[in-house]
Nucleic acid binder design. Structure first.
Lengths: 227, 227
DNA sequence: TGTCAATTGTCAGATGCTGACATTAGCCTC
DNA sequence: GAGGCTAATGTCAGCATCTGACAATTGACA
């Protein structure tokens, strides 16, 4: 319990010790059980006791792995977001800010499975995304997490461009607008085929929808950057 | 409890009946006591019991006026947001979308006092805004409320321009980006003079900061709108 | 004044979450 | 491989938010 725990996801293939492996198994089991219940019967209608009973651990153990019931709902999101941020950091240095953000978003969506399949089935991750979007209390937390991510993105953009985040508002502004576009795309996608369940198709659809909206406002945002 | 309750703010000067007046008084007293406690000792460290004891009503009564502890924290925000939306609706029809949003925002900030002074002192409203921005759980709800407001704004913009909100993404996109700018301005303001407390000055500062940021990205956003 | 309906209070209980302490179980040394 | 160390888990008590049910109070209106 010394080093990670806050990361808790980014590819750590062989967690040598038996203890570590057991911990990871328990954690993943809790996440799977929680998302399964949340997506099946709804977030509010699922109690923490139901989750812990499904995994056969005490309620207290649950709250040692997750700070709150909300926390577990975002476990796979957390992994996906780390994946996205890593994609941004891996972008070539000569790319313009918006191009780098766009590329990172599309890359991350393309390889979403690699980053979370050890924890939960990607299809469950997608279903959970819809639950988040349609559950007010989860949506609120989701938006706050997005805001935190935007802050990190703005700092990374500022770093890439050699700008002072406190002196130049452009990094924050371009990220804020980028985030706005992403959210609009996600929302429209969520409202689209509400009860269809087209499995793997959904990921592609959301990815394409995002690309479409980004390309729509991209030119003018880029112009704004140069001023 | 039949008609309003959800509105609960927009200027209703003489609520004739004794019952209605008493209800409004109780409600306002709860809001004032709550915001006073929240701003003095923090949101998390304040219990609902403390609020109800200060007003001398039962806890059950509190939850009849407000659906949750979070709810009361946004009572004055709700009024301010209605004020802003009304300002947008009152804008001349020939104004461009972004100009109308800009004008409504600045007007609303200018006359913020008129819309909430019956409920709470404007200075308390401002202090509460900072508590919201700096309290994670409240910030989350705040962002969700903003998202809901943006949806309403997008629909109003679409109506003004005679567009179909489901067919043309521009209303949502311009509003999303407008909202992003507003949030950046609000965040920067909140971080600025953290412990200064310059009273009325604060409102002016935030208003000006908003105007500055809007003017910064305004031209390019307007370009985006025309295509 | 007396009846009706709305407001409030009281009570019990579900749920989320935390601290304290006991118990179990992996790990490491001798 | 026995025993001690420490991390993980379980148990229990308790606080806070929030809700339903029912009783008591109080304004409204004939």
């Amino acid at each position: 319990m010394t080093t990670d725990e806050a990361v808790a996801d980014t590819g750590t293939p062989p967690p040598a010790g038996l203890r570590e492996r057991k911990k990871r198994r328990t954690r993943n089991a809790l996440v799977r059980a929680a998302l399964e219940l949340f997506t099946r019967q709804g977030y509010e209608r699922t109690t923490v006791d139901e989750i812990t009973e499904a995994v056969e651990v005490s309620q207290r153990t649950f709250f040692r792995y997750f700070t709150s019931k909300e926390d577990v709902a975002f476990a796979s999101q957390e992994a996906a977001e780390c994946h996205f941020f890593a994609a941004l950091c891996g972008r070539p240095a000569d790319e313009a800010p918006l191009a780098a953000l766009r590329g990172a978003a599309l890359d991350a969506w393309g390889s979403i499975g690699d980053s979370i399949e050890q924890m939960v089935p990607p299809e469950l991750h997608i279903r959970m995304y819809r639950v988040i979007e349609s559950t007010p209390s989860l949506l609120a937390v989701h938006l706050r997490r997005i805001a935190e991510m935007e802050e990190r993105l703005a700092r990374e953009i500022a770093r890439r461009e050699g700008l002072d985040i406190d002196a130049d508002p452009r990094p924050r502004l371009v990220v804020a607008m980028f985030g706005g576009v992403i959210r609009v795309a996600g929302k429209l996608w969520g409202e689209r085929d509400e009860g269809d369940e087209e499995e793997g198709d959904s990921v592609v659809t959301l990815r394409d929808l995002t690309a479409f909206h980004l390309d729509y406002v991209g030119p003018s945002l880029a112009k704004q950057w140069d001023k």
